[in-house]
Design a protein around this nucleic acid. Sequence first.
DNA 1: GCACTATATTAGTTGATTCAAAAAAGCAAA
DNA 2: TTTGCTTTTTTGAATCAACTAATATAGTGC
Lengths: 217, 217
Amino acid sequence: MQTFSPTEENYIKAIYHLSKGKETVATNAIAEAMETTAASVTDMLRKLNDKQIIDYTKYKGVSLTTEGRIIATQLVRKHRLWEVFLKEKLGFAWDKVHDIAEQLEHIRSEELTERLDGFLGNPKFDPHGDPIPDAKGRIHTQNYKLLSEVSEGEQVVVVGVKDSSAKFLNYLDSQKIALGSKVQMEQKVEFDNSVKVKIGDTNTMISDMAASLILVM
Amino acid sequence: MQTFSPTEENYIKAIYHLSKGKETVATNAIAEAMETTAASVTDMLRKLNDKQIIDYTKYKGVSLTTEGRIIATQLVRKHRLWEVFLKEKLGFAWDKVHDIAEQLEHIRSEELTERLDGFLGNPKFDPHGDPIPDAKGRIHTQNYKLLSEVSEGEQVVVVGVKDSSAKFLNYLDSQKIALGSKVQMEQKVEFDNSVKVKIGDTNTMISDMAASLILVM
DNA sequence: GCACTATATTAGTTGATTCAAAAAAGCAAA
DNA sequence: TTTGCTTTTTTGAATCAACTAATATAGTGC
């Protein structure tokens, strides 16, 4: 299996992020994002094209190949998992985690990534609220919604949280809310957007703040 | 503050480890340790000498300067802290942690190191039993001894453990042994090397296996 | 001083990354 | 379809880190 230098990986990531929405990414767009010149980018594009990471046609922009997309999502996965670790476990402020994660994402060890994921409780979102791809590179944002968005009468299952601090997890514990819990939306209070839900046989009030951090489907 | 490439850092670490006991380290010794040629080493020595990391006199071998020694111990500190993390938190086997720590030790962030240290409970030893330098680079091996080495009648204070797995820490908890606990050695049993100690007002039997993992002074 | 070993120097290679300047391609309006 | 403009590519080269083979020199034990 071929490996990539940190610089190559950063190019791959940049192309991935710039691809959002667009079919192809322009050379100049990459140059701007990487704070370098178009000439350097063209150089790297030829290299990544040879390695079959991108589909590159001169003057026509680039797109990631399937393999390129896998590499990119794995980088994003690692980056965001490390961000969760830095914030939730080491207590870094959420705005300080990015730069260190930028270094940590280049550590090469699949086993490390998977063990870290498990250790963190398979988080679905990083401290900035961005979704974390799973080991296969899938991001399932669209399937999820927030508990605060569920309609009255609807029954849903808890699949994740956007905040995995000890404080919030303890709160969930005390309310008997866990991953996999079946939750029935009983009533939505207009006044403060809090919600009344039924979990098992008991009714519980949950504030809007908490309900906006609980992911369900 | 000047920074160093991973390769430079590896040279510094090698010189540090080869300095054990000796006054100076020979070029060839470094070449062998780094699996390279003496010529490459000489190159790097000149470079590190210019950066004031080592004292280098041609044909006379090298030694680390004070600054070099600080950098080396910080690298060792980071390496061993990450090893503890990988083993105790992520559940890696002790013989698998070295290679990944070899990568992680090059991550640049003092705050990361100090927060990691705190998160791990300021461990004094890595999974191989090697001592972890503190933030100031000090290694206090000589002050410590194992509980199993204490003489009858002696009173000591618990300052660390060599195994910080949940299993062992739970055991210590149940025996009311914590960091800072005063322990009086009552009796050493010759048959199985277990020890009888007094903690507060209560007497407890501790097996040789456990007593050999508890650091006291 | 001789022979041997350790070390240093020289001169050059490789690979990664970058860039300035010039050329080419694409594009769109006249 | 020509012109003018923008974008992109190519060219040619520079830099840097790391390394090495071959050669020269220093140190050391006898």
